[in-house]
Simulated scan of single mutants.
Amino acid sequence: MASCPRCEASIDDEARYCAQCGAPQTEDAAQELDEYVQRQAEQVAGSGGGGSDGGGPDGFADMADLSDREQLWRRGCYVVGYGTVVVALTLVPAVGAFPLILAGIAILPPIRRLTAEPLGSSLKREVMVGLYAVFALIGVALLFLL
């Protein structure tokens, strides 16, 4: 019986990998492991991160693929959306809080991706801002009128 040069565990003479630590025991096994790791790294790098504004394999770009202006737009949408939701949650007993919550959710960038599947394509930015404006105006109106 041979021993693993990495962990010194006893292994069979014909073993390609150590049963204890998984280290390759032959040059062929080491090359096979390197190729496998390389394929896995390419798959992970190729799958992107799941952005939401057009360009990736599912029709949406990764944040790194977006221009500075698009990144600023998306970050602004997150700030406005989450800010509106937080403010609305502080007003929850009031009737106007619920349209404000919907407004905050409507402008979040992931909502564009979620609406793309049932509608066939993502809604335009202008549509999302329009939905935000409509819900926000209804919410503010209800807060002041009731």
Score class of each variant (00 low, 15 high):
Tyr36Asn: 13
Ser52Phe: 13
Gly59Ala: 09
Thr84Val: 02
Gln43Asp: 12
Tyr82Cys: 02
Gly59Trp: 07
Gln40His: 14
Val85Pro: 01
Gly55Phe: 11
Glu35Met: 14
Leu108Val: 10
Pro57Thr: 05
Gly55Ile: 10
Ala106Met: 11
Ala41His: 14
Arg112Met: 10
Ala103Thr: 07
Ala45Leu: 08
Phe98Ile: 14
Gln38Trp: 13
Ser67His: 05
Val79Leu: 12
Arg74Asp: 10
Val37His: 15
Gly104Asp: 07
Leu66Ile: 02
Val86Lys: 00
Asp62Ser: 12
Leu108Thr: 09
Thr90Asn: 05
Val85Leu: 03
Leu66Thr: 05
Leu89Ile: 09
Tyr82Asp: 00
Val92Asp: 00
Arg39Asp: 15
Asp62Lys: 04
Val37Gly: 11
Val79Ile: 11
Glu35Arg: 15
Gly50Arg: 07
Val86Glu: 00
Gly54Pro: 09
Gly104Lys: 03
Gly55His: 11
Arg74Glu: 12
Gln38Ser: 15
Gly54Thr: 11
Thr84Phe: 04
Asp53Glu: 11
Gln40Asp: 13
Ile107Trp: 04
Val79Tyr: 05
Asp53Met: 13
Glu32Gln: 13
Val44Asn: 13
Ala88Glu: 01
Gly51Asp: 10
Ile111Leu: 14
Ile107Cys: 05
Leu33Gln: 15
Pro93Arg: 10
Val87Asn: 02
Ser47Gln: 15
Gly46Leu: 09
Ile107Tyr: 04
Gln71Asn: 06
Thr84Cys: 03
Gly59Gln: 06
Val80Arg: 03
Val86Pro: 00
Gly83His: 04
Val79Asn: 00
Gly55Asn: 11
Ala61Trp: 06
Gly55Trp: 10
Gly54Lys: 12
Ala106Asp: 01
Glu32Ala: 14
Leu100His: 05
Ser47Leu: 13
Arg39Gln: 15
Gln40Ile: 15
Leu91Glu: 08
Phe98Glu: 01
Ser67Asn: 08
Arg75Val: 02
Asp65Cys: 05
Arg74Pro: 00
Glu70Trp: 06
Pro110Cys: 11
Thr90Pro: 00
Leu108Tyr: 02
Ala97Glu: 02
Glu32Tyr: 05
Val85Tyr: 06
Gln71Thr: 02
Asp53Trp: 15
Phe98Asn: 01
Glu70Tyr: 02
Thr84Glu: 04
Gln40Leu: 15
Val85Gly: 02
Ile101Tyr: 01
Pro57Gly: 13
Pro93Val: 06
Val79Gly: 01
Thr90Met: 12
Cys77Pro: 00
Arg69Ala: 14
Arg75Gln: 05
Leu100Ile: 03
Gln38Glu: 15
Gly104Trp: 07
Trp73Met: 11
Trp73Ser: 12
Asp58Val: 05
Val85Ile: 11
Val86Trp: 03
Ala61Met: 09
Thr90Phe: 08
Gly104Asn: 05
Gln43Arg: 15
Arg74Thr: 05
Ala97Phe: 10
Val85Trp: 04
Ser67Ala: 09
Ile101His: 01
Tyr78Pro: 00
Gly51Asn: 09
Arg75Met: 04
Gly96Ile: 09
Cys77Lys: 11
Asp62Thr: 07
Glu32Thr: 12
Ala88Thr: 02
Val44Pro: 08
Gly55Arg: 12
Gly50Trp: 08
Gln71Pro: 00
Val95Ser: 06
Gly50Asn: 08
Thr84His: 06
Asp53Thr: 05
Val87Gly: 06
Leu91Phe: 08
Ala61Asp: 03
Pro99Ala: 06
Leu100Asp: 02
Thr84Tyr: 07
Pro99Leu: 03
Leu100Tyr: 03
Leu108Ser: 06
Gly56Ile: 06
